[in-house]
Nucleic acid binder design. Structure first.
Lengths: 198, 198
DNA sequence: ACCATGATGTACCAAACGGTACATGTACCA
DNA sequence: TGGTACATGTACCGTTTGGTACATCATGGT
């Protein structure tokens, strides 16, 4: 198998980058850290940018995979929102998410090796989540808005959590969003925004 | 004046970094780009890390300043949320915000020159915004949650906007949040409102 | 037995890096 | 006028960088 050694190497690279960060990555330093030589990285990935592309693609594939395992289990939007947050805020994912945001930052600066990432970082989520919300009974326009907002809430809260570590406060804000989103239930099938006037 | 030349230099550095990004910054390249020599950057900032610290601190100070100019003008939470989003999503700010998120990513990896940034990136906002919401009549617990959530929404949507450029869709999601937050108004009625009645 | 193919170590390259020594310029104050 | 503090250009140092040439090793098919 040709891919096996290479994939194992890639896996070790990602693992190490999740620990120390990404930006000041040098082939030699990385190679030493994962117990190989920079010669091997060049051999398998061609160049530094080749490595970066494969790392970014792997992270993006994992993001997609994580999304695929996110299934409903409930009909209640509030419960769904809570489950969503509980899933993505799992401390085990923190290193991967730090790396994710680092790649995101590079993507915002248009680094060429982030092309695939840039295209999928939002679209890969809004599509499936919109579908999910539609299946849960939201009119499609509301579902699309809610999906985009939920994604933003998740990422924004994650940024907060990773920076401050203040889990209680961030969980609390997430809970508030889960409660607020209940307001959407009222709109099911009943489109015009409704001011509550008893 | 001692600080003037240095500050002008720093200003030009930030300006350039907002255009090309931050991560692969080298003293020589940056110096050439802003029309000076790397010798001058070392002279004024001592070292590369010294420069980074000053850049990050400047960005953080500007963030604080931007916050200070954010004033109420309305009593309605929904309108307040709209105004907030309109302010931060101004295209003029996009380069500064790209740089902001890049620094944020470095901060998540614990880079030592981001110490000040890390401490203030959330706290500098939640405090004042909580106060603002309290002044608008929210009970303090709700105000704190809403402030934290609003900050996350703003940053999450900004990430989306900067990556996709899909202003219509992101504005739409922001509008949904503005409408959802109306749900908080209902809670205000149930609690002793501390409205400023002359 | 032989050789093709993939994997790996060693040694090197030119370029760029952060940083510094030193000499020079420029201003203003005494 | 002389000096003193800040500013700037040049030229260099040792180190590290991405990348490569070349030789070697292991393995498995024929």
């Amino acid at each position: 198998m040709s891919g096996t050694a290479k994939e194992a190497l890639l896996e070790r690279c990602v693992e190490h980058l999740q620990e120390v960060g990404f930006s000041d990555l040098s082939m030699r330093e990385l190679a030493a850290a994962i117990g190989t030589s920079h010669r091997m990285l060049h051999y398998h990935f061609g160049s530094r940018d080749g490595l970066l592309v494969e790392i970014v693609n792997l992270m993006e594939a994992r993001q997609r995979a994580a999304l695929a395992t996110l299934e409903a289990g409930t009909d209640d939007l509030t419960e769904l929102s809570r489950a969503f947050w509980k899933r993505v805020s799992d401390p085990v994912l923190a290193p991967a998410e730090r790396l994710f945001f680092e790649i995101y930052a590079h993507a915002l600066n248009g680094r060429p090796w982030t092309a695939g990432f840039r295209e999928s970082v939002v679209a890969a989520w809004t599509g499936p989540v919109t579908d999910m919300l539609t299946r849960h009974g939201l009119p499609s326009r509301e579902a699309a808005r809610a999906a985009r907002l939920s994604l933003a809430v998740g990422r924004g809260l994650l940024l907060d959590l990773l920076a401050t570590g203040d889990r209680a406060a961030v969980d609390d804000a997430a809970e508030l969003f889960a409660e607020l989103i209940t307001g959407l239930e009222a709109r099911r099938a009943r489109h015009p925004p409704r001011r509550d006037r008893p």
